[in-house]
Amino acid sequence: MNTVISVSGVSKVFNQGRDNRVSALESINLEIDSGEFVSLLGPSGCGKSTLLRLIGDLTSPSTGAVLVNGKSAAQARRGREYGMVFQQATLYDWRTVSRNVQLPLEIMGHSREQREARTQEMLKLVQLESFGRHYPWQLSGGMQQRVAIARALAFQPSILLMDEPFGALDEMTRERMQMELLRIWEQTKNTVVFVTHSIPEAVFLSSRVVVMSARPGRIAGIINIDVPQPRNFETREHPRFFEKITEVRECLRQGETNTHKGPPS
């Protein structure tokens, strides 16, 4: 497996030189291979979003470097390698569902036929074929989030960056969406970086879980999830699943105590 994303020696300080200075991330090293599903897990405020945004070049590191396929993150972004999904679906009110999915294709200059074919395909993938002409406000939260995923996948980016995409959904919808995401991931063979603060979600979805601790944001440990693939509803009852959940929880607790013992930041 070849490395796709490589984060080395990265730290991020907000408001440098002012009295509301925040050290959000410190000495982060992380390598992600092609086709991996990696979760970033940790308590809120530990810098998960910041790390994801660094990878996606929505913000830049204070020190260190983020490389994607050997290029800088900025180059990767300009090369349109990222599909992003945020906690809020961020659909444009003024566009119908299918026009929302088409948005990146328009910007990237695809022809009309290509766009429409692709949109149809994507809507089918997220099982919303019949909702193309609806406006976002006519959809439930879960449906909106599926549109956002369809939009992120529409231009076939090689890397999917997701920041708590299911955070605002109820438990039932959430589990269904997780299954759907895995199904899509198996089909597309994308590299996925997935931010969450739910332990079962991280374990269920990922091939690796990056456990982070707060103040300053650090990687407390990286845990391989060797729960058999493909995952399905039986996975949640698999003994290995529970063992891994325990292991991740243990790692989180350790990260916490280390922080408390460590020097004040």
Binding site: G56, L58, R80, M84, F86, T90, Y92, I107, F155, L161
Partner: peptide, 19 residues
């Protein structure tokens, strides 16, 4: 967030203005 989305597509200023 709407602007960040456009940034993630590496959209031009003109595209951001129009869309």
């Amino acid at each position: 967030a709407a602007l960040e989305l456009m940034r993630s597509y590496a959209a031009t200023d003109l595209a951001v203005l129009l869309r």
